[in-house]
């Protein structure tokens, strides 16, 4: 566990948070009265099946979705609307296609009114941090998917966010690139030490990255289990093949399968029969 003292910024509190999506008769609860607290500097993965509301929950912490009940707080300030102190990284294709890589990364500083030369210099430093020195003048369309995600991470980090919110950032990458990006993220995080909330449906990814995994239930999303990952850092390939890793993986798989069965049961199919097909 990488604990930072309580007074360091980046503490996230979610209390009794419900989120509703859709309009009119189609409105439904995507997240139901979720509560948890993340100490500053912790790397937390939100793990759950597709459609469980984990991205919705992240969207509310980012400030893009309003709370139906409860709320989310960052360092005891209630979250209303998006802000650069809560950096959000999406799955793909959210770089500005009309800006060169260096200006994409420098964008947050431009919004703060930092001068062109200074913000470009800072952007170059961050591009170096994510291993993209030399690609400053490219347009996003000229980069591969993995490179684009590196730019996304650099673009968010330039605002020195207190918390980094990542919405399945590597889900669209091939397995090899994803593995490289996971290691890169841990390397970057070991240097910037912000709080990280990382949404994924990939069990291996969650156990490899996180200090702690919050396993979510099927819709409406609730926290099903709060799993601590008691592995040291830095983590490498050994961790992926350790007994402890496999034990945690079995536990997560059991939880996920459970949720799958409950989802089938909820749709009126015999739960036992649905379970037999998994």
């Amino acid at each position: 566990m990488t604990e930072t003292p309580n007074d360091a910024p980046g503490r996230v509190d979610v209390r009794e948070l419900s989120i509703e999506l859709g309009a009119g008769a189609d409105r439904f609860r995507a997240v139901e009265r979720v509560s948890f607290a993340i100490p500053a500097g912790q790397f937390v993965c939100l793990l759950g099946p597709s459609g469980c509301g984990k991205s919705t929950l992240l969207g509310a912490v980012a400030g893009h979705l309003p709370a139906a009940t409860g709320g989310a707080w960052l360092d005891d300030e209630k979250i209303f609307g998006p802000a650069p102190e809560r950096g959000l990284v999406f799955q793909q294709h959210t770089l500005f296609p009309w800006k060169r890589v260096v200006d994409n990364v420098a964008f947050g500083l431009k919004m703060k009114g930092v001068g062109r030369a200074e913000r470009r210099a800072r952007a170059r430093e961050l591009l170096e941090l994510v291993g993209l020195a030399g690609f400053e003048d490219k347009y996003p369309v000229q980069l591969s998917g993995g490179m684009q995600q590196r730019v996304e991470i650099a673009r968010v980090l330039i605002n020195r966010p207190r918390v980094l919110l990542m919405d399945e950032p590597f889900a669209a990458l091939d397995a090899q690139t994803r593995w490289v990006m996971q290691q890169l993220l841990l390397d970057v995080w070991s240097r910037v030490k912000t709080t990280v909330v990382f949404v994924t449906h990939d069990i291996d990814e969650a156990i490899f990255l996180a200090d702690r995994i919050l396993v979510m239930s099927h819709r409406p999303g609730r926290i099903r289990e709060d799993l601590a990952i008691p592995a040291g850092r830095p983590r490498g390939q050994e961790w992926l093949t350790s007994d402890e890793f496999l034990r945690l993986k079995r536990r997560c798989m059991a939880l996920m399968r459970d949720e799958h069965e409950r989802a089938f049961g909820a749709r009126g199919e015999p739960a036992a029969l649905a379970g037999a097909f998994i």
Partner: peptide, 27 residues
């Protein structure tokens, strides 16, 4: 213009008319 681009810009601190000049118009 992709809603995710607008969301990303807002998360990066874009407000008001700058959303037009920085995101909507170039998009």
């Amino acid at each position: 213009v992709d809603a995710r681009l607008v969301a990303a810009a807002r998360s990066l601190g874009t407000r008001g008319l700058r959303l037009f000049s920085e995101v909507i118009a170039p998009g």
